[in-house]
Design a protein around this nucleic acid. Structure first.
Lengths: 207, 207
DNA sequence: CTTACGATGTATGCAGCGTTCACATTAGGT
DNA sequence: ACCTAATGTGAACGCTGCATACATCGTAAG
């Protein structure tokens, strides 16, 4: 039975480890995420988690994968299928908000060397990638979806990280949201007053 | 135990630790950056570095600060004072190249929880911030330098991180450079074919 | 020139970590 | 009812960061 009692077998240790890891992540940051601490919190011996995760990286990858799935839900909740720049900006705001609300999780998802060993993790990140591309494709059919989605994702991702690292003003959520909206809007607005000289003479032309 | 001259005192252990840390970072990634390994490489006892760095974080912060200074040099070398979009794109390419050439260092600089304890580190990051803002201010006097520099920094920073995490095509440096140039240029080019409906009347209306 | 002191490096030890291995316990199919 | 495979336990190894007590040395005052 799954309820925690005096049973020798835990019931669903795999899920319990994931849950414990998430809690530790929120409480002590990624530094406190140790397999032993996870085992302690799950009320189990230090080596029990090895029956469900090959090593620490496997657990971390599982946490990251779950984070990706939650991020996808979070973005979809902000707007199911944005088409206007403002709707797209709303999704961008949600992305940054997600990062600021779960900083340790977000760091685990992106800031750690992502080996291509975890199928679950790779699948989750390509899902996010496809999601962003799908949004861009739907919103701007005429554009190069590949390039534009890369650009918008990078912009939002960079905003999230800079906020996370305290490089930008993170005083209130509203300030952050305004900043994100302004940045995204800049992507889709012709900067009339800008570019005093439109230098386009030569570039790396390599056919 | 010091091979050189056999002197008891090292001479400049502080610098030697920094150098050893940089080497370990490039060889084994941030996981291999341990105080003990640094001490070993410097040919010194395990606790000697504590005379020069309060704890591991202090060493890491010193490494990060040095990374910031090198990044500033690297960008300046790409172009001392860019004014056209293409010149600015060249600096952006340098930023991403820096990240891809020193992935572990870049991660130490940005991906780790940056406590405001290290004065050296804070000073170095604000220097970078000021540098970017200065470029934007010089290149686009009419624009809101604060907002625009945030936007361009975030875009480039996000590109660097997504490349670092293998989320984008990193097969050859040329491919990466083209991608970065295209993204930066998109920031300063009116997206003609885009925005089928220009939802600009109001925003944030999502009860 | 001697001597005392502060700066620097060493030796030792503790607790926590990831990981392995032999062993104990139990669930579930035959 | 039993046998097997899955699951959890315990001890152990080597690594880590770090605190404490001790050794060595440059240097400047006397």
């Amino acid at each position: 039975m799954s309820q925690a009692g005096g049973t020798y077998h835990h019931g669903d240790l795999r899920a319990a480890c994931l849950r414990a890891a998430r809690e530790l992540l929120e409480e002590d940051g990624s530094a406190g995420l140790s397999l032993r601490a996870v085992a302690r919190r799950a009320g189990v011996s230090a080596t029990a988690p090895y029956r469900h995760y090959a090593d620490r990286d496997a657990l971390v990858s599982a946490v990251a994968a779950q984070g990706y799935r939650e991020l996808a839900e979070y973005l979809a909740a902000a707007h199911p299928s944005p088409t206007t720049p403002d709707e797209l900006a709303a999704v961008a705001v949600a992305y940054v908000r997600f990062a600021l609300e779960r900083p340790a999780l977000f760091r685990v998802m992106f800031a750690e060397p992502c080996d291509p060993n975890s199928e679950e993790r790779v699948a989750a990140t390509t899902a996010i990638s496809e999601y962003v591309r799908g949004i861009v494709r739907g919103a701007f059919p005429g554009a190069d979806a590949e390039a534009l989605s890369t650009t918008v994702w990078a912009l939002v991702h960079g905003l999230a990280f800079l906020h996370l690292d305290g490089k930008l003003d993170t005083s209130t959520p509203d300030v952050v949201a305004d900043q994100v909206r302004a940045a995204v809007r800049a992507l889709f607005t012709a900067p009339a007053a800008l570019s005093p000289k439109t230098g386009a003479p030569h570039e790396g032309a390599k056919p």
